[in-house]
Structure formats: structure tokens, C-alpha cells
Amino acid sequence: MQIFVKGLTGKTTTLEVEPSDTIENVKAKIQDKTGLPPDQQRLIFAGKQLEDGRTLSDYNIQKESTLHIVWR
């Protein structure tokens, strides 16, 4: 499925993911596209910070959802 990651600059990155992907895995995909290391990424969805060990489905993140990224 496709999801979007929007940064503070307003730039949006598209990712191809599975609902079973962990947040850690998603951060690795973001690094592949942007070069930003996972330890500098904070992902937010529906006002919650996403924890590395959880999956996208744990947070009810579905296709075409938009996550927000904040740099540490």
C-alpha cells in the first residue's frame, strides 16, 4: 500500500509499505529516500508519536494515510 510522509518543509515523500511493517522498517525506507537516519526521525500520526516496535496496523494506518515527520 502507499502512504505519504510529510515533513516540516511541506515536502511529501511517498512510500510503498505493508500494514505489517514495523515503524522501524518504515524509518529505514524513509532513510533510503531522504538520507535522514532513523535515529533522527520522529513519526507522528493522529497526534501520536509512533514507536519503533509497533506496526502500521497497530496504529490503524491505512493506504494513503499521511504521517508527519519531525527531525530530532
Rank of each mutant, 00 (worst) to 15 (best):
M1W: 08
M1T: 03
M1H: 03
Q2I: 15
Q2K: 12
Q2P: 07
I3L: 05
I3H: 01
F4P: 01
F4E: 03
F4T: 05
F4W: 09
V5L: 10
V5P: 01
V5Q: 01
K6W: 08
K6P: 02
K6I: 15
K6N: 07
K6E: 11
G7H: 13
G7R: 06
G7F: 15
G7D: 15
G7T: 14
G7Y: 14
L8C: 08
L8Q: 10
L8N: 08
L8V: 12
L8M: 11
T9N: 14
T9I: 10
T9Y: 14
T9C: 08
T9L: 13
G10C: 06
G10R: 02
G10H: 09
K11H: 13
K11Q: 14
K11L: 14
K11S: 10
K11I: 14
T12R: 08
T12V: 12
T12C: 07
T12N: 05
T12I: 14
T12F: 12
T13G: 04
T13A: 08
T13M: 13
T13C: 06
T13P: 03
T13L: 13
T13I: 14
T14V: 13
T14P: 09
T14L: 13
T14E: 09
T14N: 07
T14M: 12
L15A: 02
L15C: 02
E16L: 14
E16H: 13
E16I: 12
E16T: 14
E16P: 03
E16Y: 12
E16W: 15
E16F: 11
E16G: 05
V17A: 04
V17E: 00
V17Q: 01
V17N: 00
V17C: 05
V17H: 02
V17R: 00
E18H: 14
E18W: 12
E18N: 12
E18C: 07
E18A: 11
E18I: 11
E18Q: 13
E18K: 12
P19E: 06
P19R: 07
P19G: 09
S20T: 12
S20H: 10
D21A: 07
D21V: 03
D21Y: 07
D21M: 10
D21I: 04
D21Q: 04
D21H: 05
D21L: 06
T22P: 04
T22Y: 08
T22R: 07
T22L: 11
T22E: 03
T22H: 05
T22S: 09
T22W: 04
I23V: 09
I23D: 00
E24F: 11
E24A: 13
E24P: 02
E24L: 13
N25I: 15
N25R: 15
V26M: 03
V26L: 15
V26K: 00
K27C: 02
K27E: 01
K27Q: 02
K27I: 04
K27L: 07
K27M: 06
K27T: 02
A28F: 14
A28H: 13
A28T: 10
A28C: 06
K29F: 05
K29Y: 07
K29G: 03
I30E: 00
I30G: 01
I30P: 00
I30W: 05
Q31Y: 15
Q31K: 09
Q31N: 07
Q31T: 09
Q31F: 15
Q31I: 03
D32V: 11
D32Y: 13
D32I: 14
D32L: 11
D32P: 02
D32T: 12
K33V: 12
K33I: 13
K33A: 15
K33F: 11
T34I: 12
T34N: 04
T34M: 11
T34Y: 11
T34R: 03
G35F: 04
G35K: 05
G35R: 05
G35N: 05
G35M: 04
L36F: 12
L36P: 03
L36Q: 05
P37S: 10
P37I: 08
P37F: 10
P38G: 10
P38Q: 12
P38L: 12
P38D: 04
P38M: 15
D39N: 12
D39C: 07
D39Q: 14
D39T: 12
D39W: 11
Q40M: 12
Q40V: 08
Q40E: 10
Q40T: 07
Q40H: 06
Q40R: 13
Q40F: 11
Q41P: 03
Q41W: 15
Q41I: 15
Q41H: 09
Q41F: 15
Q41L: 14
R42S: 14
R42W: 11
R42N: 14
R42A: 11
R42H: 13
R42V: 15
R42G: 07
R42T: 15
L43D: 00
L43T: 01
I44M: 14
I44D: 04
I44H: 10
I44L: 13
I44P: 00
F45P: 00
F45I: 03
F45S: 03
F45V: 03
F45N: 02
A46V: 07
A46I: 06
A46E: 15
G47Q: 04
G47T: 04
G47F: 05
G47C: 04
G47R: 04
G47Y: 05
G47P: 01
G47S: 05
G47K: 04
K48D: 06
K48S: 08
Q49L: 13
Q49T: 13
Q49G: 08
L50E: 00
L50T: 02
L50V: 03
E51A: 07
E51N: 07
E51T: 06
D52R: 03
D52P: 07
D52Y: 04
G53F: 10
G53W: 12
G53L: 08
G53P: 06
R54K: 15
R54S: 06
R54Q: 08
R54I: 05
R54P: 04
R54A: 09
T55V: 07
T55C: 05
T55E: 03
T55Q: 05
T55S: 07
L56C: 03
L56M: 05
L56H: 00
L56Q: 00
L56R: 01
L56D: 00
S57T: 07
S57L: 11
S57I: 08
S57Y: 09
S57P: 02
D58G: 04
D58F: 14
D58I: 02
D58S: 14
D58A: 06
D58E: 09
Y59Q: 02
Y59G: 01
Y59A: 02
Y59I: 02
N60D: 09
N60S: 08
N60Q: 09
N60R: 06
N60P: 03
N60T: 05
I61W: 01
I61N: 00
I61E: 00
Q62C: 05
Q62S: 11
Q62W: 08
Q62K: 11
Q62P: 07
Q62L: 10
K63N: 15
K63F: 07
K63W: 06
K63D: 14
E64A: 09
E64T: 06
E64M: 11
E64H: 13
E64N: 12
E64L: 12
S65P: 01
S65V: 06
S65I: 04
T66R: 04
T66H: 15
T66V: 14
T66L: 12
T66M: 09
T66I: 14
L67Y: 01
L67A: 01
L67T: 01
L67G: 01
L67P: 01
L67K: 01
L67W: 01
H68T: 14
H68N: 10
H68Q: 12
I69T: 03
I69M: 12
I69F: 08
I69W: 03
I69Y: 05
V70C: 06
V70I: 12
V70F: 13
V70H: 11
V70M: 10
V70Y: 11
W71C: 07
W71Y: 09
W71G: 11
W71T: 13
W71S: 12
R72T: 15
R72H: 13
R72P: 15
R72C: 08
R72D: 15
